[in-house]
């Protein structure tokens, strides 16, 4: 990336997206260890009332093209590059999704908010009931193009302005999206409007109640993903978020992921100038590390402290 592009990241102060407070206290400070898109450092703060962890200050919307470079993995998690890991992940994710969608009608309308390149919709198309109507929204033109390339019905829109009919959706997905957006309450409200009364939202996001957060929150936690994760939740702040968005919490649990553990270690090594052979042992392509951390995190998931929050919210009847 050119130097002048790096400097084009501008920052703005923000409030807690749940309570509007501006008195967050510092929890961690770090850099873009993964993509090095900017020379800024970022401060993660905790809202003393909501326990929300958020970046303050954070990049302005105008800086988004810089902090999401072309090589960003959300648009490039394809099969050739990630081989075995991709297969394992697909199988696991499909199982989880279908379990969450159990009991839906045969002609259910399903919406993936922040669908990226259509990875999850594609899984549902392959493994789910054939009668399901699949929709997606995403704001990134490159992602939408990729999803449409797979033959999926995707709008290039924020969900707030989606053309879908209010009250038409049975089941919404919001998978590792909420942490990237500036106003999670607005997104959840918008999803709530699109849901049928009693309709469900299946939400996955990084868990700040996890042990890897506790250990590495000062700087290297993988879940910070500096500066792209703007709002990060634990169970308490997730409940507050749901309340602010007028949604009911149907289920609040955690699930296993090796990604944050892997990146927490990797970021530490990168930051402490470890040799590259060591750094490379910890990446999304490093099957041994991913396997080991999956096993490890599974143990924490059993006691409700897994790496990801797994939430089912419901629009009140």
């Amino acid at each position: 990336m050119a130097a002048d592009e790096r400097e084009s990241v501008t920052l703005e102060n923000v409030a807690c997206c749940i309570c509007g407070g501006v008195d967050g206290t510092p929890v961690g400070v770090g850099e873009d260890f993964e993509y090095h898109t900017t020379s800024h450092s970022f401060l993660a703060v905790r809202c003393p009332r909501c326990e929300l962890i958020y970046l303050d200050p954070r990049p302005t919307p105008a800086s988004l093209p810089v902090i999401y470079p072309d090589e960003y993995h959300a648009f490039a998690f394809d099969e050739e590059q990630f081989g075995l890991v991709h297969k394992v992940r697909s199988r696991l994710e499909a199982r989880r999704l279908l379990r969450a969608g159990r009991g839906l009608p045969a002609d259910a309308h399903v919406l993936d908010v922040g669908c990226g390149d259509g990875f999850h919709l594609d899984l549902l198309r392959q493994h789910g009931p054939k009668g399901w109507q699949l929709h997606g929204v995403d704001t990134d033109a490159r992602a939408v193009a990729a999803a449409r390339g797979r033959g999926l019905d995707v709008e290039e829109q924020p969900v707030e302005t989606s053309a879908l009919a209010p009250g038409s959706i049975d089941f919404a997905l919001c998978i590792q999206t909420i942490e990237h957006v500036g106003d999670p309450v607005a997104i959840l409200r918008a999803i709530g409007k699109l849901l049928k009364p009693g309709g469900r939202l299946y939400l996955i996001t990084d868990n700040t109640g996890s042990p890897d957060f506790k250990i590495t929150k000062g700087r290297h936690w993988g879940g910070y993903h500096f500066p792209r994760h703007w709002n990060l939740f634990n169970k308490a702040s997730m409940r507050k978020l749901a309340e602010a968005a007028d949604l009911e919490v149907a289920k609040l649990s955690t699930t296993t992921s090796p990604v944050n553990w892997t990146y927490s270690v990797r970021n530490t090594l990168v930051d402490w100038n470890a040799p590259s052979w060591m750094v490379n042992r910890f990446s999304l392509k490093a099957a041994p590390a991913l396997a080991a951390f999956t096993a490890f995190d599974t143990a924490f998931t059993v006691i409700g402290r897994g790496a990801l929050l797994r939430v089912i919210l419901r629009r009140p009847q």
């Binding site: 400097e7 990241v9 920052l11 102060n13 510092p26 400070v29 900017t38 020379s39 800024h40 450092s41 970022f42 401060l43 303050d56 200050p57």
Partner: peptide, 12 residues
Amino acid sequence: TNRFMAALGMRA
């Protein structure tokens, strides 16, 4: 500190 400068958005 870097923490103070990051809070003010001037660490860069």
